[in-house]
Design a binder for these strands. Structure first.
Lengths: 248, 248
DNA sequence: GTACTTGTTGTCAGCTTGATAATAACGAAT
DNA sequence: ATTCGTTATTATCAAGCTGACAACAAGTAC
C-alpha cells in the first residue's frame, strides 16, 4: 500500500522545506456591490498571457507573515484603491481552489474570498482611482456569467461567490452589509432583487424583514412619493428563512 | 502606499519560486460517523512535540500533482485504512486555515475537509486496522468539544465542521450520507439527533422528511416493535428547511 | 392472549406565506 | 387647495405549514 507517514506534524519535524516543489498561495477576491438594481463585481483585465485580455478576479500573493484573509484585505485595498478604514466592507472566505492545472505555468493554490461593499444602491464605489494598468472596474455579474469567458477557473469562483451570497441572504441579514449604516426597506429589497435576479412583493418583504431590523425612527427624504423609514441591521439569523423564488 | 504588483498572474510571470519562503499545504479531515445515537469524529493522538499526546485531526501533505480534495481522499484511506472503493463516503471542502502562527514550527496552511462515513447507526467503521502508531480512533464529538484540548487550531476546525454539518442538514438530505443505501426513518432521525444533540418528535419528522425520500417498498426486520419502511435518498434540497430547535 | 415496544398516520389550533387590496404620505401639476 | 401620480406601509384572507399530541398498527416476549 506504500503508506506515507500518517501524522502531518511528525512529518513536518523531518521535513526539508526545499524537498517539495513550492506551492504559491494567492488570495483572490469576488467583490460585489449593487447599483441601479444590478449586482456588479470588480474585475481586472489581463495584460499578458495566458488568457490575455480576458477578465479576471483581483487578487495576489499571500505574504510570508499574513493570513489569507489579511492578504485579501490588503489586495482589496491595493487593487481597488478603496479606503477600507472609511468604507465598511464585509469579507469572508469562500473556498480554496487547488487543481494542479488551474494555472498552466506553475502550481498556484488560491484561497478565494467574498467581499461585500456598501453602496447607497445608486453609485458604485470608485475603483478607477488607481493609476495601475490592471486597475479593477465594475462589471454586471449576471451579464458576465452569461457569455463572457473569464481567465483561469475564475468563472467557477465567481459563480460560487454568487451562490454563496444568494444562499446566505436567505437566512441571514448579510444583505444589509451592501448598504449604508441606515437604509430603507426598499433599498434592502433592491439588494435582494439584484442578487437573486428576480422581483419580490414589497409588502410581504417588509413583513418578513421587519422583526430582524431596528427602526431608527428617522425617515428618508424621498424626492418623490412617501418618505420611508430608516432601519439599521445587526448580523442576525432569519428564522424561518426567506424563500428565494424557484424560477430563474 | 508601497504597492505590490496588482495582477497575480503578471507577478507570477516574473516570479522566482525560490524567492518566497515556501508554504506547506496540508489537507486535514473532520471525519464524522454516527453510532449509538452519538456523533463521533476520527482523531489521531500526537506522538511528538508540540502538543505531545494531544488529539489532532487526521491529515497530511498535498502532493505536487494532486488537488487538496484528492489529498483528502488519499489521507483518509491511508490514516484510517478504510477501503473507499467499497465504503461510500461524502467529502466536501470546509475551509482553509492560514494563520501564520498556527503551527509554531513553520508555515503550514491547511485546507480542511468534512468527510461523512456511512454506518448502520450501531457500529463505527473499523479504523484501527492500520498498524501505524498514529492510527485514528473514534471519539464522541460533543464530549471532545466540551473539555478536551486539541492540537493546533483543530478545536476551531472541528467546531466549524460540526457547524457546517448541522447547518447543512437543515436544508439538504446530506444526513442520509451517514447511513446505508437503504435506511429507516428512525435511523435518519437518529442522525439528526446525534448531530444536533437534541431530540425530535418522530411524527413531525416523518411528515417533513417523507417528500424528500424514496420509499423502496421493502421493510426492515425489526428485532422488536413494528417493522419500518426502508427509504433511499438522493441529494436534495428541503424546502422550506427543517428547523433546528433553538435551545442546545 | 396480554403487555410492551416501535413505527405510522391523524388531528387541531396557531402561525406563516403569497397574493392582493387598502390606506397613508409626499411632490408636482393644475 | 385640490387632484394626480408615486411610493411606503399596513391590512386582509385563503392556503399551507408547524408543533404538540393522540390514535392506530404491527411486531416480539412472556
Amino acid at each position: 500500500m506504500n503508506r506515507e507517514p500518517r501524522d502531518e506534524k511528525e512529518f513536518l519535524d523531518a521535513y526539508d522545506s526545499k524537498a517539495y516543489p513550492s506551492i504559491a498561495l494567492t488570495a483572490d477576491l469576488v467583490v460585489f456591490a449593487v447599483a441601479g438594481g444590478v449586482l456588479h463585481a470588480a474585475m481586472v483585465r489581463r495584460g499578458g498571457h495566458p488568457f490575455k485580455n480576458a477578465l479576471a478576479l483581483p487578487g495576489g500573493f499571500v505574504g510570508p507573515h499574513e493570513s489569507a484573509e489579511q492578504a485579501a484585505y490588503r489586495e482589496l485595498a491595493e487593487e481597488t484603491g478603496l479606503d477600507l478604514g472609511r468604507l465598511p466592507v464585509h469579507v469572508e472566505q469562500l473556498a480554496t481552489y487547488s487543481n494542479p492545472d488551474r494555472d498552466p505555468r506553475m502550481r498556484v493554490v488560491s484561497v478565494a474570498h467574498l467581499a461585500l461593499l456598501a453602496t447607497d444602491g445608486q453609485t458604485l464605489p470608485n475603483i478607477s482611482a488607481s493609476t495601475d494598468a490592471a486597475a479593477a472596474a465594475w462589471h454586471p455579474v449576471h451579464g458576465v456569467l452569461h457569455g463572457t469567458e473569464l481567465a483561469f477557473d475564475h468563472t467557477t469562483i465567481l459563480t460560487n461567490g454568487l451562490d454563496r451570497l444568494a444562499g446566505k441572504m436567505e437566512y441571514t441579514t448579510v444583505a444589509a452589509r451592501m448598504l449604508p449604516e441606515e437604509f430603507t426597506m426598499t433599498q434592502l429589497r433592491t439588494v435582494y432583487e439584484a442578487v437573486w435576479n428576480t422581483t419580490l412583493a414589497a409588502g410581504n418583504f417588509t413583513r418578513k424583514m421587519l422583526p430582524q431590523l431596528e427602526d431608527t425612527g428617522r425617515k428618508s427624504k424621498a424626492s418623490i412619493g412617501a418618505p420611508a423609514a430608516l432601519f439599521t441591521a445587526t448580523d442576525r439569523h432569519i428564522h424561518p428563512p426567506l424563500a428565494k423564488p424557484a424560477s430563474k
